[in-house]
Structures are given as structure tokens and as C-alpha cells.
């Protein structure tokens, strides 16, 4: 439903999106993750044809984003973190406005708007002014506005930034329902790994390039056997000890534990060594074990924090995948 082939866009000397190719199928949620400035928003704007590509092509439900922009755009529902509503208009009036902009016939807008308000759970609030809505309700209205013309493709640019966790949960349940029931294709960018883990596939963008993509389980498998959890007291001392171990590439501190990224094949060796070094009375170690890698571990490794490069698995044909130029 969404295809990008060799899509590129530069701003001056900055290659914001650099030769990116990907596909999102009907009924699929594709998550775009990557550091700030990696090109996520630019990529989404290229798909909407809000920006023109320097090279490459994007198609939306078979229509070229650049050459058939009207037809392509009619298939897209778009929601960003900065969507605008008319504060003085009611919920229904706002939705009617978006329905008219999207060309819904006069006969159709009211039943469609009521359907969509019911779907997002705002049907009881259709007469309320937008400015009197809570943040979560505004976001649901934003989603309703993006869906009013029955798009087959939904583009979400960090849709839940600053939204509370129960509202986020509701939001995602709605998105997954649309995907399961109506087979829409969803592309969502997010800085949050707990959100990325809900996607069927994730693409990791870095300095404009798509470094790798795969199901969350495939991405986690890249670090399989290489993440060791160390918990105990005093944590800061444990961090110092781990930082000096030659078999450990990277130490990530969490609130009550450390995640240690070890060199390939070195987990047992590192665990044995740390067990010995922390056996004294100065330490109380509560957990020291290999754990399943989390997406956050993979993200940090892919971002190329230090020398802990990840081997990018095959599948994406890209000779210059260096995460740290």
C-alpha cells in the first residue's frame, strides 16, 4: 500500500532522507524509529507530497505521490503531534469541516461523522467546543478528523507525544482495530520503544538512511545472548566494575539495574568474571544473568553510541551501513 523506492531529499548539504526504500502492506503497522533529526518527519512529509523528493519515488495505494498528488492524498489520513483544531467550533463542526475539505458529499458527512465519533469514543461529546476537551479527547478528535474520509493509509508522526499512558493505550487499540478490521496500512514514527514494540515491523532510520528493518522479535534477535542484567547494591560501584570489563561493550544504567552489552559469545565468560569480582562483602548482587534483549538495547546499539557496533543483518542491500561515520 505504501512503497518508497530510493527516496531522497536534501536540505542544503544535509541529506535528510538518503536513498530510503521500504514497503508497508495492507493490514500492517510499520514503525519508523531513530534519533532526533534522523529524517522520520521528512520521510513522512515526502509520502504526503508535502515535500518534493530530489530523487526516488513514493507510491500510495498505487498512485504516485509526486505525479498524482490529489489521488494519492485522498488515500491518506495524516496525524502529527501538532494537529490543529478549531477551538471555537464543536466536535461535530470540526469534523464536518474536515469532511468537507476532504470532499465528502453533503448527504454523507453526518452519518460518517457520527460513525467515526462513535469509533473513537467521542459520540457523547459531539456538541462540546474543542477548547473544552481534555488533551486525550483532542487527540481522539484529531484521529477522527484524519479518518473521516476513510483513508486506506494512515501516517502518524509521533502521534502520542505528551499523551498520558491510558489515553495512549486507547489510541493504539483504535489503530490496531482499524488495521485488523479494515486492512488499512499504518506508518507511525515514534521515539518510544514501548510503542515501537506494538508494530509488526520496525525500520531504523539514522542520518537519513534506513539502517535495518524487521519484526520487533527479529531486531531483538540481533543482540540475542549479548545482554546481561546486573542488579544489586551499590549500583554505581557495580557500574564501575562492569565498565572496566574487557568483554563488555557498553553499560546502560536503569533505575535499579544495569544492562551490559557483551561481545558476541562472551556472555558466560563475563557472567563468571563479574560473579567473582563482586563476591566480596562490598557488593550485594541480586541478579546476574543473560536476559532477552529489549528494543531499547537494540536502539542504543544501532545509534552507534561508542564502539559497540551491531552487525547489520542481511536483507537490506546497503554497502555503507556504518552507524558512526
Amino acid at each position: 500500500m505504501i512503497t518508497a523506492s530510493h527516496l531522497s531529499r536534501a536540505f542544503g548539504k544535509v541529506r535528510a532522507v538518503d536513498d530510503v526504500s521500504l514497503r508497508v502492506e495492507a493490514g500492517e503497522i510499520y514503525g519508523l524509529v531513530g534519533p532526533d533529526g534522523a529524517g522520520k518527519t521528512t520521510f513522512i512529509r515526502l509520502l504526503c507530497n508535502a515535500l518534493r523528493a530530489d530523487a526516488g519515488e513514493a507510491t500510495i495505494a498505487g498512485f504516485s505521490a509526486a505525479r498524482q498528488p490529489e489521488l494519492a492524498r485522498a488515500q491518506i489520513g495524516y496525524l502529527s503531534q501538532r494537529f490543529s483544531l478549531y477551538e471555537e467550533l464543536t466536535v461535530l463542526e470540526n469534523l464536518r469541516f474536515f469532511a468537507e475539505v476532504r470532499g465528502l458529499p453533503a448527504r454523507e458527512w453526518r452519518p460518517r461523522c457520527m460513525d467515526i465519533l462513535k469509533f473513537v469514543g467521542l459520540d457523547a461529546f459531539s456538541g462540546r467546543r474543542a477548547r473544552e476537551l481534555s488533551g486525550g479527547m483532542k487527540q481522539k478528535l484529531g484521529l477522527a478528523a484524519a479518518l473521516v474520509h476513510r483513508p486506506r493509509i494512515i501516517l502518524l508522526d509521533e502521534p502520542t507525544t505528551g499523551v498520558d499512558p491510558l489515553t495512549r493505550q486507547d489510541f493504539w487499540q483504535l489503530i490496531i482495530r482499524l488495521v485488523s478490521e479494515e486492512g488499512v496500512a499504518v506508518l507511525v514514527s515514534t521515539p518510544y520503544m514501548d510503542e515501537a514494540s506494538r508494530c509488526a515491523r520496525i525500520g531504523f532510520l539514522h542520518r537519513g538512511k534506513l539502517l535495518t528493518e524487521g519484526a520487533p522479535s527479529q531486531l531483538r534477535a540481533m543482540l540475542q545472548g549479548r545482554v546481561v542484567e546486573l542488579a544489586g547494591q551499590p549500583l554505581r560501584e557495580l557500574r564501575r566494575v562492569a565498565g572496566q570489563d574487557a568483554g563488555i561493550e557498553n553499560v546502560q544504567m536503569f533505575g535499579d539495574r544495569l544492562h551490559l552489552r557483551v561481545m558476541p559469545g562472551k556472555a558466560d565468560e563475563v557472567i563468571a568474571r563479574l560473579a567473582q569480582q563482586t563476591a566480596g562483602a562490598a557488593f550485594q548482587v541480586s541478579r546476574l544473568r543473560a536476559v532477552p534483549p529489549q528494543l531499547e538495547d537494540v536502539f542504543i546499539a544501532l545509534s552507534g553510541d561508542a564502539d559497540g557496533a551491531l552487525k547489520i543483518p542481511g536483507g537490506i542491500d546497503r554497502p555503507d551501513t556504518g552507524a558512526h561515520p
Partner: peptide, 30 residues
């Protein structure tokens, strides 16, 4: 709204402050 690598940099600073005895109370949605 900050990515994991940048978040980690901020948290390293927060941990350093806590190491100096500063107490930190954080509200979050994430």
C-alpha cells in the same frame, strides 16, 4: 519526545546528580 540515545544522556546526568546526594522526583507518562 526525546529519542532513547538522547534520553540516556539526560539520565546519565540525573544519575550523576543523585550520586552527589541530590534527590530526584520525576513525573512521567512513559
Amino acid at each position: 519526545g526525546v529519542d532513547p540515545a538522547a534520553r540516556r544522556a539526560s539520565w546519565d546526568l540525573i544519575y550523576a546528580l543523585a550520586g552527589d546526594g541530590v534527590t530526584v522526583l520525576v513525573t512521567t507518562h512513559y
